[in-house]
């Protein structure tokens, strides 16, 4: 890239040079911000993960000791398990639900704009406010959920106060944020050319066949995007567990980020916490790459077919 830009610089006209300068100047604030506040700290934390450090008194190089200790700690594995269950439950659940809502809102309904706004609205509410709201919903005796279940004669569980139900509670709560995914699916649905449906109708396809053979293939780029971003976010879940359960009861909702937060800011083991952060990063990047690689087999870009 740099070579190409340098070549462009040499061979380009004065106008092109000015364009390049303008482009760099426009990019500069972001680049400075990225290097200073994202890439720099990332490199620092990578280095820190090989040190025993509290950032206050002492720093010793310990090689891979932090990583070794991490893999020997039961709590780390527990937090990993919690994170995986959460990620691989919320992402499919959220994606399916978002798609379902998008399909409904893609119909010619009365007050469509209002419905779309209503479904998107929860996305703009802060995580803390949402957590406080769901604390009330999950209240075992007075909460909405158990009162609703009681209508059908079902005695609801203790939700957040039970180590069995605390994590499922957070998973249920995650559907609250499907509005953003829904909006992307909606945009995807509206981008599907109508002539494809017309052709399918002429071929005698019913609604279900049209959904599976036209809608889903044409939506695969959106599905790919939503699932990839969803997984990245799900692996980093923290706010809900931090505010609603503090990782409990009995560490049943201890996510990896909460685990590393505790190590860094309560036990003041920044080197160890950095190692945990890099393990999480490795997990996220691995799944992202696998997903990216597999996308060649199942994601369909209309433009590619034309090439």
């Amino acid at each position: 890239m740099a070579m190409r830009l340098a070549r462009q610089w040499r061979v380009g006209s004065s106008q092109k040079r000015q364009d390049l300068i303008t482009a760099y100047l426009c990019l500069l604030p972001w680049m400075v911000g990225f290097l200073s506040f994202v890439f720099g700290p990332m490199l620092f934390s990578l280095g820190l993960s090989f040190f025993r450090s509290d950032l206050l008194t002492s720093t010793f190089f310990v090689g891979f000791e932090n990583y070794r200790d991490l893999f020997n700690e039961d709590l780390f594995w527990k937090s990993l398990r919690v994170t995986f269950i959460y990620a691989f439950s919320t992402v499919p659940l959220g994606s399916c639900l978002a798609l379902m809502i998008a399909l409904i809102l893609n119909q010619k309904l009365l007050g469509l704009g209002i419905w779309r706004t209503i479904y998107y609205l929860p996305t703009v509410i802060s995580g803390v406010a949402v957590s406080l709201l769901w604390l009330q919903i999950f209240n075992p005796r007075a909460g909405l959920l158990n009162n609703f279940l009681a209508i059908f004669g079902v005695e609801g569980p203790s939700w957040l106060y039970s180590s069995t139900w605390a994590l499922p509670s957070l998973i249920i709560m995650s559907v609250w944020g499907v509005g953003a995914n829904m909006l992307l699916y909606l945009a995807g649905l509206q981008g599907i050319p109508t002539h494809l449906y017309e052709a399918a109708t002429i071929d005698g396809a019913n609604s279900i066949r049209k959904f599976w053979h036209v809608t889903i293939p044409m939506l695969t780029p959106t599905i790919f995007f939503n699932v990839t971003i969803g997984l990245i976010y799900a692996f980093q879940f923290f706010t809900q567990a931090f505010i609603m359960t503090e990782g409990g009861p009995n560490n049943a909702t201890l996510s990896m980020v909460l685990f590393l937060y505790r190590k860094a800011f309560l036990q003041i083991r920044f080197g160890y916490a950095s190692a945990a952060a890099w393990v999480l990063f490795a997990i996220i990047i691995t799944f992202t790459l696998i997903f990216q690689y597999s996308s060649r087999r199942w994601v369909y870009y209309e433009g590619e077919a034309a090439r």
């Binding site: 709590l75 009861p249 009995n250 036990q267």
Partner: peptide
Amino acid sequence: RFQSVAEELLVPAMEAIYVEGS
């Protein structure tokens, strides 16, 4: 001496006894 280290073990145990009664 290392309170947060102790709490990491004690809080889940106490929660199991008193919050869940398990």
